[in-house]
Simulated scan of single mutants.
Amino acid sequence: MVDQDYEIPSSFDPFADPEVADSVPFSGRGKEYCIHIRVQQRNGKKCLTTVQGCNKDLDLDKVLKSLKKEFCCNGNVVQDKVLGKIIQLQGDQRKNVSKYLVKADIVKKEHIKIHGF
């Protein structure tokens, strides 16, 4: 057999955790964080809006009460093991929630990510 002097390159895994966590923007540390607003399809035309990644110092129950009153919809706060506390609202409220969070000075506009169809 012949010894080979070259090394086989390893493949890049885009879903792997980064080695240096401080280099990741919006990692939820300190004042830099990102709020993700998503819509989930339920049955038929019904859908659900979720807001995750809020600052841990923020009282989500008060924010939820204000959102429900502002948009005339129902909602609740759900505790997830991995993601933390998540606000759920009835209907597609993505644009309304993002405008409200900016107007209420809870988060800056560049820290909001809107996902969905």
Rank of each mutant, 00 (worst) to 15 (best):
K31V: 04
Y100E: 04
Q88S: 13
I86K: 01
R38H: 13
V78E: 09
G44W: 14
N74R: 15
K65G: 14
V97C: 07
V82H: 12
Q79G: 04
D22A: 01
N55L: 06
A104M: 03
I106K: 08
S10M: 05
I8L: 06
K95G: 11
K65Y: 13
F15A: 08
L101Y: 06
F117I: 11
K56N: 15
Q4L: 11
H111M: 02
Y6C: 14
A16S: 00
V20M: 11
L89T: 02
V107G: 03
T49E: 10
C72H: 12
I86T: 09
V20W: 00
V78W: 11
G44R: 11
H115I: 08
L58N: 03
Q4C: 11
K65S: 13
I112S: 04
I114E: 13
P18H: 04
N96H: 13
S98A: 15
M1P: 06
Q40M: 15
I35L: 03
R29W: 14
K46L: 14
K81M: 14
A21G: 00
V51P: 08
V102P: 05
R38K: 02
S27K: 05
P14L: 01
I37W: 00
M1S: 06
I114D: 10
R38G: 13
G75A: 05
Y100H: 03
A16W: 00
G116I: 07
Q93V: 07
E32N: 12
E32D: 15
D92E: 06
V20Y: 07
V107Y: 02
K109D: 00
L67G: 04
I35R: 05
K109S: 14
Q90H: 15
K62I: 13
L60S: 12
V97E: 12
Q4E: 11
Q90V: 03
F15I: 05
K103N: 06
V78A: 12
I8N: 12
L60N: 05
V2E: 09
K113N: 02
S11A: 11
L67Q: 04
Q88I: 09
D17T: 06
H36R: 14
L101P: 14
S23C: 04
K68T: 10
Q79W: 13
L64P: 13
D3Q: 00
I35K: 01
N55G: 13
G116N: 05
Y6K: 10
L64V: 13
M1C: 03
T50K: 06
V78T: 12
I37D: 01
K65V: 02
I86A: 10
T50G: 09
Q90N: 03
G44Q: 09
T49N: 07
K113L: 00
D57C: 09
Q40C: 01
K62D: 11
T50Q: 14
V82D: 15
D80P: 13
P9K: 08
V107N: 05
C72W: 07
N43F: 12
Q4S: 03
G53S: 07
G28S: 04
K85G: 13
G30T: 14
